[in-house]
Simulated assay, not measured.
Amino acid sequence: MIQLDVLCIGFLERDFEGELTAAHSTSTLIRAEGRNIVVDVSTPYMWPAVKTSFRQIGIFPEDVDTVILTHTHSDHVGNLKRYPKAKVYVHKGGKSEISGATVVEDDEFQICPGVRMVHTPGHCTEESSVFIEADRRYVCAGDAVPLEGNLKENKAPALNTDRRLALESIERIRRYADVVIPGHGAPFIV
């Protein structure tokens, strides 16, 4: 059976005028069919929490064979070098190149049975989410759903390249998911 563990819960900080001052993504481990898959690797600031989670689970970063990046913004890719043996996947359209990454062009791409990348643009052109069939249907949404309120209030991410596409992606996630792991917060039930 597929297991999920949130390695660290990301967050966003804004100043009094609403300007973003800090962003650190949530990072999730998926264990499926002998595979260790990490969705988003977060930032160096979050590494101590990620390392502690690995220790508690009994897995090491060297055991991770796959990294899926929901997109290429720095708050989601900052610890990539800590996964030296992992094959990295990212959807096409990103402005930042990830050296050696496999670029997925399809709308949906199966990583392994029960785990698939799904293109969910709007926040940015390459945005994808990871749909997982486990004890429930989970979505690691990245910044397609950066915070719980985005899905609950049907509100596009504050930073977006296409508001209409962002809202369509939120709806696609809502239709599939029982549980959403947002890009910058704790998991929540839909």
Rank of each mutant, 00 (worst) to 15 (best):
G18T: 07
R163V: 13
D178F: 10
Y89A: 05
I9D: 06
V130E: 02
D40I: 07
G10R: 05
R116Q: 07
Y83D: 01
L165P: 03
A86P: 09
P84K: 08
T102E: 15
P157Q: 09
N154F: 15
I59S: 08
P44A: 03
G100V: 10
P44V: 02
E13G: 03
Y138C: 00
R163Q: 15
H73F: 14
L12T: 11
C124N: 15
I170A: 06
V180Q: 05
I9R: 11
L159W: 11
T43P: 06
I111Y: 01
I132C: 04
V88M: 04
D106P: 00
P48G: 07
T72N: 10
S74N: 11
S74F: 12
A86C: 08
S128N: 15
F131C: 02
G10M: 03
R172Y: 02
K92P: 07
L12P: 02
T70D: 08
G94M: 08
K155G: 04
A86E: 08
V90Y: 06
K92W: 09
T125A: 11
L159F: 15
N36S: 12
G122C: 06
C112Q: 10
V115R: 06
P187R: 05
T102W: 10
N160F: 12
S128I: 12
F188S: 03
D178C: 05
R136D: 05
R174T: 05
